[in-house]
Design a protein around this nucleic acid. Structure first.
Lengths: 224, 224
DNA sequence: TGTAAAATTCACAATTTCTTAATGCCAAAA
DNA sequence: TTTTGGCATTAAGAAATTGTGAATTTTACA
């Protein structure tokens, strides 16, 4: 079931959103301030977080920024609630790692279709806790750290596996070198420019040359 | 898995309790004030709640009283944390519907045995894991702590057996060293870097070299 | 309390994986 | 056509990780 965490200091809005989304079959969690939101997010690990921008103490943008520094929330969708369409904070909100925003007053239909659209965009099979991804002619098992290519079993070394897992986590998405560095090596490790190329090459050697595409000057993506 | 909600305004204590209980395999949720505690309790529906009595705004006794008015929490165990054994609030705490109390300073052993005792009282029977596993050319019997390899009977020493049992409990899954440590030694025991290797080696000596696979930088798995 | 088995440690050896550096290749820009 | 920027390829050696035999410490229990 899709878990959604809603954060707003106004109880009315919390109730309103909860009601409408529960009706659609989502698993709703609520919370009324930024600090608890972060705590809860860690425990719930929701697929989507709806964040009011205007909140006392810690506002939505701040919460988002905090969550986005943690790799745990890489895949978590974050939607902002904002009072007026013209609000400048919308821009900074999306800058900070938000995926979308919804303006008040909220129409249930708009809310629901936005939420569904976002979730649809999200990788369908790889449900946060999902440990097996089937894509192209590959079955990638996170727990077994193994890849089946057709009937053949591949055992990739750690870095290669992580790289593949990253690319496959969002098929079609282009990962910049920067992203790949920070996610696989961590931002404090410094490695040369060719390191990623080499790993990409080894992956291609093993899983075939067609699935991993190079976009010159931009990055790599997994295509299928 | 048993869910435990811990409520305390002091982060140190929260961390301390979380750490010790997680180590025992409980599913831990935390929260630092009474109001959020009630909100979370509804969403998590934990089997047990550990409540600090002294908290700003809404104290533990108050939280307990509130929860006890709802039938949803009839079966929920509530344990109070209190600073001194003589604290009069203990009495009112238990009056109010608490199941037990623990006094600070908290000793991990006391904490754990209290919690387990309460849960044991609660839960009549837990169906244990399968006791005999047949895999590859092995028949592994948990109760007898013995392994048949073909027609040959092996009697493995405790640690070796536990390690084999762990690996075999999820064939194919890679267990990191970290996992192996915490599951077999417990995260508070410190053993050297080569200890696992040595046990793996002894296992391989006895059950044959092919079934236990090393994934460098990741861990070990049982393959078949 | 003595003793044997079990568990752990240690110092290296053996492997595997990762990174780099040098060079080639290609397409787009000058 | 030449230059240039960016990626691919390769092989080599660094670095990280695991394996091993023997020694040492612990533990279980007679």
């Amino acid at each position: 079931m899709t878990k959604i965490l809603i954060v707003d200091d106004e109880t009315d809005i919390l109730d309103f959103l909860s009601y409408n989304l529960k009706k659609e079959g989502f698993d709703i969690y609520t919370c009324s301030d930024g600090k608890s939101a972060i705590q809860m997010a860690h425990q719930i690990l929701p697929q989507l977080i709806i964040l009011d921008i205007m909140m006392p103490e810690m506002d939505g943008v701040e919460v988002c920024r905090t969550l986005r520094t943690e790799s745990e929330f890489d895949q978590t969708l974050i939607v902002f609630l904002t009072a007026r369409a013209e609000d400048v904070s919308q821009i900074s909100a999306l800058d900070v790692g938000g995926d979308d925003y919804i303006t008040k007053p909220i129409k249930p239909q708009v809310l629901i279709s936005r939420v569904k659209a976002l979730l649809r965009r999200q990788r369908p099979e790889t449900d946060e806790h999902e440990q097996v991804v089937k894509i192209a002619d590959l079955i990638i098992d996170r727990q077994k750290v193994s890849v089946m290519k057709g009937a053949e079993l591949l055992e990739l070394p750690k870095k290669e596996f992580e790289l593949l897992w990253l690319l496959v986590s969002r098929p079609g998405k282009v990962f910049t070198r920067e992203e790949i560095y920070t996610k696989i090596w961590g931002s404090d490790v410094i490695v040369g420019d060719r390191t990623i190329d080499v790993h990409i090459r080894k992956l291609r050697e093993k899983i075939g040359p067609d699935n991993i595409k190079t976009l010159k000057g931009i990055g790599y993506k997994f295509d299928f």
